[in-house]
Amino acid sequence: MIQQIRIDNFKSLVDFEIRLAPFTCLVGLNGSGKSTVLQALDFISQQMRGELGEWLVLRQWDKRDIGSRLTAKKNIDLFVQVELPGCDLIEWSASFNRQSLRCTSEEVFHDGIRLLKVEDAECWLTYGGDAGLRTRKIDVIFEYQGSILSQLKSNQICEILQVLKEEIASIRSLDLLSPEYLRQRTRESAGYLGLGGQKLSAYLHELGSEERERLLDQLQKVYPRLTDIDTRSLRSGWKQLDIAERFAGKILKTPARHVNDGMLRLLAVLSQLSSDEHFLLFDEIENGINPELVEFLVDALVASDHQVLVTTHSPVILNYLEDDIAKKGVIYLYKKSDGATQAIRLFEIPSLAEKLRFMGPGEAFIDTQLTELDKEIQTLQLLWVSQEGKDASVAER
């Protein structure tokens, strides 16, 4: 699981840090930076895929768009902490140059041992074995984008570095998910829906029959008339998606272009819960979903084996979370006076923690004036700084 992310100089994220849970839900006012956090996680994922140029084109961005206007810094600094089974931690840090689209410096630490160092076009790799640790230097004479790990093969790096690479690369964002994209025909998916879900028809066509049956079983819990998720290949390789339903004893097939928005969104989200991606990102998860189906969707995401991060504007989403899930996973985003986005666990704020004793998570959030909440956070942070100063003074003595 990815436990912690730090990023500095990405849009409104300046010296930004967030601790992640198996299920994380971002809340906050419009413009607080919720979508930016999803974009930042997607940006971090691209470091291990080495496709930054294509990624910028896909999002219709320029190199200048990803840097922050709140600072004069040129590079974007990144830090990711990954927890392995057994509670081992791997930490990757890097400095990304926006002009070259490359991490010009990188380090990876595991159990206090530096496994990777990149600096000034030179790379050092550390390996372990029966003979002990050994370090090998590689001259970086090849072109690449993102992290150098995006170009190094599995036989060139140790197993820990390979796991790190795969974990970060398995972050998948669907923050642009929309019915318009979901209705599109596509030829192939390469195992990925696309940021907006535009490869849905091909993705479902490429699923194994067992996975498609499991997906159908899930959807039938909320769409009992549903009998089949049908895909077929048309001329030139285009894939057609049809939804089959039973009405008055007859089976009616509806092409994706005429299927309701909610069913298409549920189909896309649930299809990802059987994917090989480990960390899934969804923006405004309640969009287009009937209120009576939202609880079903939230339950499916929370119970998933995947790590999941969603954003929402609906307090109702929070009410479908158990208190312990809400305490760990609901993150409140806000902006400081200089415009930088900050994050805090919502129910670590004393007034919200007190309300949670008597109310549901969503009810506690509705019952809070967000303008007053920002003031409380500022006071809380001053107390933390004061306590850190006292602790440091005691330690010196």
Rank of each mutant, 00 (worst) to 15 (best):
S351Y: 02
R114V: 02
L383G: 04
L267C: 06
G33E: 08
V222E: 07
K390Q: 13
I160Y: 14
K327W: 00
N319Y: 00
D130F: 06
K336N: 14
L219Q: 09
Q342F: 02
L207M: 15
S12F: 01
A343D: 03
V108A: 08
N319F: 00
S393L: 15
D367C: 05
E213P: 04
E348W: 07
Q198A: 11
F247Q: 12
K390T: 06
Q99A: 12
N260G: 14
D230L: 11
T379Q: 14
L174P: 06
A202I: 00
L41D: 03
L193M: 09
S304W: 05
Q342K: 14
G129T: 00
L200A: 13
E83G: 12
Q198S: 13
S105Y: 00
Q39K: 10
L252D: 12
K375F: 09
P179L: 01
D323S: 13
C158A: 08
V330N: 04
L20I: 03
A21V: 07
L116R: 06
S189E: 04
D88K: 10
N97R: 05
G389V: 12
D374T: 06
Q378V: 11
I285F: 01
A40K: 02
T227W: 01
H110K: 10
G197M: 01
Y334V: 00
R212N: 09
L373P: 11
E322D: 12
L84Q: 06
P224R: 10
L382A: 14
G360H: 05
K73W: 03
V140C: 15
K63Y: 13
G128C: 08
W92F: 15
E363M: 03
Q60N: 15
Q198K: 10
R185F: 09
I317E: 00
I325L: 07
E322A: 15
P85A: 15
K74Y: 08
L13A: 08
S236L: 11
C25M: 07
P315W: 02
G146P: 08
R102Q: 12
F43I: 01
W238E: 11
F282P: 06
S150E: 06
L280N: 05
D139L: 09
V294D: 00
N9W: 07
Q151S: 15
D367F: 09
D15F: 08
S95P: 07
L380C: 03
D242G: 00
Q342T: 05
E292T: 12
S271E: 00
V298Q: 01
L164M: 10
M359V: 02
E286T: 09
L115Y: 00
E348M: 04
V222A: 08
S147T: 01
W61M: 09
L280C: 12
R114W: 01
I229M: 04
A340E: 07
